[in-house]
């Protein structure tokens, strides 16, 4: 049987990528002084930590401290997402090249790229001396970062719309503003709302971490308990956080599915 050969440049590319991956990982591992033995001994060390966490510290005092902190992370994530959603929505129209002017769209996109490049934590500690220790800093950091990411995603949704409805509005005498309100927004709203919820899920993880620099949330609790070697309580912090994230993820995913699929309407 004759099996056709792969074209040469594809084979070359394949070897090139393999070499790139192997060389890249060896270079990195040697630079970081990481040996295979360290990987092999790591699981047993992690196991020691896990066993130290159990039984969890479920005393009333621990719960009273931890649960409000986890709640705070939730509120930071939600408030940050709302800030991101409110500001990114108009910005995304400016950034979409089929709705806004070409030069305008390019400039807005660059601004969004720059905003997106700063991780939340970096934003948080630059804001920290200005807005003070506490959840407000975290909220602003999460919010600003969300403007960047949501703006990019939403503008891409707007760029992908069906131009048909816009044309029919124009041909029946609608203004540019009518086109926006009756042609663009109804088309993009479901996808954009589901992106907001998706961002909320991501922000929840980000806000849990923010406490590390003192910007509110559960992160400070975890790092303190780990520093003081109070592993049962650190375990409780972890478990409560995981539970909260799981619950929120499940609810949010269900709502997103419903928004995208739509409700069955009996006519």
């Amino acid at each position: 049987m004759n099996i056709p050969k792969q074209p040469v440049n594809q084979r070359v590319l394949k070897y090139l990528i393999t070499v790139l991956i192997v060389v890249g990982s060896i270079w990195s591992a040697s630079g970081l002084e990481i040996t295979p033995e360290r990987f092999l001994t790591a699981p047993s060390k992690v196991w020691i930590l896990i066993t130290a966490m159990f039984p969890l510290d479920l005393s009333q005092e621990a719960i009273d401290r931890i649960v409000p902190k986890v709640g705070e992370s939730l509120f930071i994530a939600w408030a940050g997402t709302v800030i991101g959603a409110i500001f990114s929505f108009p910005i995304s129209f400016l950034a979409a090249n089929n709705v806004s002017l070409n030069s305008f769209s390019r400039a807005t996109k660059q601004v969004l790229n720059v905003i997106r490049a700063f991780p939340e934590l970096i934003l948080a500690f630059v804001l920290l001396p200005i807005t003070g220790l506490g959840p407000l800093t975290g909220t602003l950091a999460v919010g600003i970062h969300s403007i960047g990411t949501l703006g990019k995603l939403s503008s891409e949704v707007i760029e992908g719309i069906d131009e048909g409805p816009l044309e029919s509005i124009k041909s029946s005498g609608g203004t540019k503003l009518n086109e926006l309100f009756f042609g663009v927004i109804p088309q993009v709203m479901p996808t954009i709302t589901s992106y907001w919820l998706y961002r909320f899920e991501i922000n929840l993880r980000a806000s849990a971490v923010l406490g590390v620099v003192g910007a509110g949330g559960v992160g400070a609790e975890l790092i303190n308990q780990l520093r003081f070697r109070d592993f049962p309580r650190a375990g409780t912090v972890l478990v409560v956080t995981i539970l909260m994230v799981l619950i929120v993820d499940t609810i949010s995913a269900a709502i997103r599915r419903r928004i995208i699929k739509g409700r069955e309407i009996k006519v």
């Binding site: 360290r38 790591a42 060390k45 934590l121 993880r205 590390v212 975890l222 972890l238 956080t241 993820d249």
Partner: peptide
């Protein structure tokens, strides 16, 4: 399950388990 734990939480846990340094980050 591993997706619910944020990246920096993993980093904190691994620094405790295997010691400070880039290996925990990896």
């Amino acid at each position: 399950f591993i997706r619910t734990i944020p990246d920096l939480f993993w980093a904190m846990l691994f620094t405790v388990a295997v010691g400070l340094g880039p290996f925990a980050g990896v």
